[in-house]
């Protein structure tokens, strides 16, 4: 569990036996987990900086899982969530999916269904984390550009040729060429499409 990239599954269920069984099942496929008896406990705990997935029971004393899911949908924590319930109906599952649950399983569920959902959740979170990291990285690169290089970059991504950029900025074509070369190198972009993608990432 020391490897920051090894995933962790959070389990929130008020039933001790279910928690224990889930932890054991996940551990049997080498997935780390932490379990909580209530939403409050889960919210209060520190969350690891690792790809995660949440397995959340619908009906619990105190905060219900459904309410928490809806709250999460508009709030800061955004974990891929697998809802589990002892007595689900269609209306409830529709609501859960609308609120962003990736899966809605009715107890007793097949262990493989749960593992599939959890793995999918972890992959979603991994992708989300990778995208976030990439955005952070590109933003750092962008911050490192000089104001002149940024001006050039803005025009280049609009499809302007060096000659046109030079005219637009009132610079010589040579200067534009030099700034463009520096900019491309600093942005770690080898081709124009690379640059456009990076640009979109931070200006989306």
């Amino acid at each position: 569990m020391t490897d920051p990239e090894s995933p962790i599954v959070y389990i929130v269920d008020d039933d001790g036996a279910v928690r224990e069984a889930l932890e054991d099942l996940l551990s049997s496929v080498a997935l780390g987990s932490r379990s909580f008896a209530s939403v409050q406990e889960f919210v209060g705990a520190a969350h690891a900086d690792a790809p995660s997935c949440l397995v959340l029971d619908v009906r619990m004393p105190g905060h219900s899982g459904m309410a928490f899911l809806a709250h999460m949908a508009e709030g800061s924590i955004a974990l891929p969530t697998v809802m589990i319930t002892g007595h689900g109906d269609i209306a409830m599952s529709v609501r859960a999916m609308k609120d962003g649950a990736i899966e809605f399983l009715t107890k007793p569920f097949r262990d493989q269904d749960l593992l599939d959902a959890v793995n999918r959740g972890i992959e979603i979170d991994r992708a989300r984390r990778a995208a976030a990291a990439e955005t952070r990285h590109v933003r750092q690169l962008w911050e490192a550009l000089s104001p002149g290089e940024r001006e050039v970059a803005r025009l280049v991504v609009r499809g302007l040729l060096n000659k046109q950029v030079a005219a637009e900025l009132g610079l010589s074509e040579i200067t534009v060429k030099v700034r463009r070369g520096n900019m491309m190198r600093k942005m770690e972009a080898r081709t124009l499409p690379d640059l456009v993608r990076a640009f979109d990432r931070i200006h989306a």
Binding site: D15, A17, V18, E20, A21, L22, D24, L25, S27, S28, V29, R59, I84, G86, H87, T106, K107, P108, F109, R110, D111, Q112, L114, L115
Partner: peptide
């Protein structure tokens, strides 16, 4: 019935999950 279903499905979920874990171990 919802209460009963919840009450019965809870241990059943633990049973099925544990069975999965057992098989994998």
């Amino acid at each position: 019935t919802a209460s009963i279903a919840h009450e019965v499905n809870q241990p059943l979920a633990a049973v099925m999950t544990s069975a999965g874990a057992c098989r994998r171990w």
